[in-house]
Design a protein around this nucleic acid. Structure first.
Length: 615
DNA sequence: CTAGGGTTAG
């Protein structure tokens, strides 16, 4: 075995690279000690580096071995910095940087050192360390290293300092495609997608990664249509599409709720045999979940051989969003059995699941376990979920107590959950309090006014209703115009409230009349009171036909084959009247109607909705 | 023997 000492890669190193458990590492370590191989400083350093690079979960073991290493080399230190830059405690990289500077062997940091340190700073998003590392880069004369340059752009983008990105980029005489892509990505990340696109269009050569960066940029800032358009352009130009790109494409489909396009993307992945990575599988689950096809989402989920916390959380969030609170909680148990550690995001779904199912005590236990068992500090979202949990169960006083005992200042969302319950349980007094608090926090929160006015309308207090309306006018509170989208054969049809510009509007109008006729026959009386002032106020239109999702449903009925569910994505929450009407339509027309509003899904079937009337 | 740009959940 000792004859192998001179070979660059010792067989033990290969073993380390493939070992995942601490025990395996310890065995190799013992083996090396037995063979006296670790007296060789070079091999010991390589051993430390290999553990660090290939066993990121066992970094403390690298530290342990390193402590037995009398004179680590620069290579060893660099490897430790690199490993820590990717760990959950990136700041520890600096410990090794200091050791380089203080070393007895007169080590001095090299281009590798700084490259890794820059990545550490990006990871840290720390406002001071980034620029000081940048200074050190200049001081040591590495500012012309292209690896470090692209790293600096990435780092400043993570900090949100777009002008610094531009400055670094501007000082590169002939930036290569990597640095050009980095600046495109930085602009998109920092909110200037328009400029990112200009730079992208000006790139003399665009490789697949550059395309992906631009598509991802669009997807991340919510410009999903642009993301898909660029993806189609990419295909027309014959650029090779890979699995990373498809993650962004699926993400765009998720946001749009575009099931047809999402299905197409899935088929494309299979047709082109793109590797089904963990990330890609997770993106697929998210796409199906956000498009309302939870069966398919779970099919993908169960088919995945490896799942991480993102995968589980995506599935769990999809289940609660689609009204399967109980299944979400079951999945949470399985996840823990699988040894996956939940994080803050996971708990949002857990608490929402409890809320939907009405498990107040269990929810409380999960909430308490966040800190006690998992060391997770509850965030505003979790407090909001707890308020919703109590509120939904009708325990409004407990909800209020919970808000009042929050260690952080309650946000509009917490009061909003209470206000929503006040509408459900017709509690005028508490509703007034909640909406006053919301307006204090967000003077132009349209939803708060609407819910309050609905509470007044329910108690037929019309003076108060018009008073709220006056206040809104005085404060210039504007609501977002309602908009519903549905996809027919992959083509997206958008319906804005009151907009009659659709080429088939005549047919739609006929169908709206037919709906109206059947509803009346079924004994439906338009609930006109709340319509006086609704989530989607529209004064001039006929009360029954005004809201965008009704128009979209009518269009769905005339353009989708019988038996095909109508899938609608709405930018606002569904109003009471539309909810009632949609339930009826699902029965009268024997049609499944799936509406994604801004918070959750409503699956309407046989006159019932999956939300059971609380949303 | 170590490096660069693009990807997922609330």
């Amino acid at each position: 075995m000792s004859s192998l000492r001179c070979i660059a890669k010792h067989p033990a190193i290969s073993l380390i690279e493939s070992s995942t458990t601490l025990n395996e590492l310890k065995q190799i370590h013992t083996q090396l000690l037995v063979n006296s191989l670790l007296n060789d400083h070079h091999l010991l350093g390589q051993f430390v580096a290999s553990i660090a690079l290939h066993n990121p979960n066992n970094l403390y073991y690298s530290n342990h071995v390193l402590s037995q290493c009398p004179n680590p080399t620069l290579f060893t230190f660099n490897s430790m910095i690199r490993a820590y830059s990717k760990s959950s405690t990136p700041h520890k990289s600096f410990h090794f940087y200091k050791r380089i500077l203080r070393s007895d062997d007169n080590l001095s940091p090299d281009n590798y050192t700084f490259n890794f340190l820059v990545r550490t700073c990006a990871q840290l998003s720390a406002r001071e360390t980034g620029p000081s590392v940048h200074c050190a880069v200049v001081k040591h004369g590495f500012e012309n290293d292209p690896h470090i340059q692209s790293g600096l752009i990435f780092m400043y983008a993570e900090l949100g300092w777009l002008s610094s990105c531009h400055q670094v980029f501007g000082e590169i005489p002939e930036p290569d495609v990597v640095c050009q892509t980095a600046i495109v990505s930085a602009c998109a990340k920092c909110g200037d997608v328009g400029f990112a696109r200009e730079l992208f269009d000006k790139m003399p050569q665009r490789d697949p990664i550059a395309w992906n960066a631009m598509i991802a940029g669009y997807a991340q800032c919510g410009k999903s249509r642009e993301a898909l358009n660029l993806f189609h352009l990419m295909q027309m130009e014959g650029v090779k599409v890979n699995q990373v790109c498809m993650v962004s494409v699926l993400s765009a489909c998720s946001h749009l709720g575009a099931l047809d396009q999402g299905r197409w993307a899935h088929a494309y992945i299979e047709r082109n045999k793109l590797p089904m990575t963990l990330t890609l599988g997770t993106a697929l689950i998210d796409m199906y979940a956000k498009c309302g096809d939870m069966n398919k989402a779970m099919e993908v989920f169960w088919g995945m051989s490896e799942k991480n916390v993102y995968t589980w959380s995506s599935a769990m969030s999809g289940l609660t969003m689609n009204g399967f609170g109980k299944k979400c909680l079951e999945l949470f148990s399985l996840m823990k059995q699988d040894g996956i550690h939940p994080n803050e995001v996971t708990f949002v779904s857990v608490l929402r699941g409890c809320s939907v199912v009405g498990l107040v005590d269990e929810g409380r236990e999960h909430f308490d376990s966040m800190r006690r068992v998992y060391g997770l500090e509850p965030q505003l979202e979790h407090y909001g979920c707890m308020v919703d949990l109590y509120s939904r169960a009708g325990r409004l006083d407990e909800a209020l107590n919970f808000i009042n005992s929050m260690p952080i200042k309650p946000h509009a969302g917490a009061w909003g959950a209470l206000l929503n319950a006040c509408r459900m349980y017709k509690n005028r007094e508490l509703g007034e309090l909640a909406s006053r608090k919301i307006v204090e926090l967000e003077a132009k929160n349209h939803g708060a006014y609407v819910l309050l006015s609905n509470i007044y309308a329910d108690s037929k207090n019309w003076d108060a209703v018009s008073n709220v309306r006056e206040i809104m006018k005085a404060k210039g509170v504007r609501k977002l115009p309602g908009c519903s989208v549905l996809e027919i054969d992959g083509e997206v049809h958008e319906f804005l409230v009151g907009d009659k510009s659709h080429p088939r509007y005549n047919e739609i109008e006929l169908m709206l009349g037919e709906i109206s006729r059947r509803l009346k026959l079924a004994g439906y009386v338009a609930n006109t009171n709340p319509v006086l002032f609704d989530i989607e106020e529209e004064e001039k239109e006929d009360a029954l036909c005004q809201h965008s999702e009704k128009v979209a449903i009518a269009f769905g009925l005339i353009s989708l084959r019988e038996g095909m569910p109508i899938r609608i994505v709405k930018n606002l929450r569904v109003c009471w009247d539309c909810h009632d009407v949609t339930k009826l339509i699902s029965r009268l027309f024997n049609r499944e109607i799936i509406v994604r509003d801004r918070n959750r899904f409503h699956h309407f079937k046989d006159g019932e909705c999956s939300c059971k009337g609380y949303w």
